[in-house]
């Protein structure tokens, strides 16, 4: 029997976000395992063009729902639209981005639709004809394989996909003949949760976005005053800025405007130096576009070493002064 995969598209009102195409790549991997049709679903205030874009570049039928009050993500409205829609149009797989919005409604979908939920999926493989979904646990030091083999036949599998796990996939075609969309407008009466505006990010206008070199400190600095080592190292580079991981911003050792990561600033410098940062998922998400990554950490098992170009297993408080000293000695001869 042909299964059905529904992808919930992510967009910013003007453009389809890349995670949507990563979800399409994910759906294709499920399709390789079992026969399945792929559909997209998009909610927004003005979704027609976005839906056309999806349909052209996927060749898939796309349901577009215009709902007032969804220019910004609104959890209650999303749930009120998605649950009846997915009840009427049941899917075997519901693929959701593991973003601050996807995380906000995906677990609710699984409860309402009597399905299961696996969040932050990073990989998929077929073992003895059972699909295994791979995700990180325990600060990325453990990887778990989960399956839905014991799920009831009519129960949907809600899966959220960690950004950056699959290469975005879209068809290279612009033929408007392929457009297959169902566009509807919907009124949603929502009184329990009312949108009141947006508070801009503290990092807006900070120099992190422009800096060519960013040196960041994490929990490995151990004490607030040790942040000076981060500044010391940044000083040897022109056009540099200092950043921080989330925990040390939470401790108040660095400002939130300096936070690097998915919930801080997403950076793309020529050089990123992570000092005493273990490499939480949300941090890795924010540094993915860096051209060259150096990691300094005393824990050889720190997940940051899996993405670094240069791995240095050292305590930063000992090692940074040595780099600075060596750099000073070198400079006159260069």
């Amino acid at each position: 029997m042909t299964k059905k995969i529904t992808i919930i598209a992510d967009h910013d009102g003007k453009n389809i976000k890349p995670i949507t195409w990563e979800l399409f790549a994910f759906a294709k991997k499920i399709q390789a395992h079992e026969k399945a049709d792929i559909y997209f679903f998009i909610i927004g205030e003005n979704t027609k063009e976005l839906a056309q874009d999806i349909s052209i570049h996927s060749g898939c039928k796309t349901y577009a729902m215009d709902v007032l009050g969804t220019n910004n993500y609104h959890g209650q409205i999303y749930k009120k639209i998605l649950i009846p829609f997915l009840t009427k149009n049941p899917a075997d797989y519901i693929l959701v981005p593991h973003t601050t919005s996807g995380m906000d409604y995906a677990p609710a979908l699984s409860i309402a639709l009597k399905g299961s939920c696996i969040t932050a999926v990073e990989g998929i493989h077929n073992k003895d004809n059972v699909l295994h979904f791979v995700r990180a646990m325990f600060g990325r030091k453990i990887q778990a394989d989960l399956s839905n083999k014991n799920l009831g036949a009519s129960s949907p599998q809600v899966l959220t996909l960690q950004a950056g796990s699959f290469k975005p996939f879209k068809l290279d075609q612009n033929d408007i003949k392929n457009i297959n969309i169902i566009h509807e407008a919907f009124d949603c009466l929502e009184k329990e949760m009312i949108y009141k505006g947006c508070q801009p990010s503290p990092s807006k206008g900070s120099n992190l976005a422009k800096a060519e070199v960013i040196v960041s400190g994490g929990r490995g600095i151990e004490e607030e005053e040790n942040y000076k080592y981060i500044e010391m190292l940044a000083d040897i580079f022109p056009r540099s800025a200092t950043g921080a991981s989330r925990p040390i911003c939470d401790y108040g050792w660095a400002k939130y405007s300096q936070q690097v990561g998915a919930t801080g600033t997403i950076i793309s410098p020529k050089l990123y130096i992570a000092c005493g940062i273990s490499g939480a998922t949300q941090h890795l998400e924010g540094i993915r576009d860096s051209q060259f990554i150096v990691a300094i950490n005393s824990d050889p098992d720190a997940p940051i070493f899996q993405v670094a170009d240069i791995c240095i297993i050292e305590d930063l408080t000992d090692f940074i002064p040595i780099i600075v000293e060596t750099a000073k000695k070198k400079r006159p001869t260069n």
């Binding site: 299961s116 030091k141 778990a144 070493f305 670094a308």
Partner: peptide, 22 residues
């Protein structure tokens, strides 16, 4: 709850250090 995923295995992530260890 009955509709739940099954944990198949856990493992240490493959060490895919793509960089150079000094």
């Amino acid at each position: 709850a009955e509709q739940i995923p099954s944990l198949e295995t856990i493992q240490f992530p493959e060490k895919t250090t793509r960089g150079i260890v000094l």
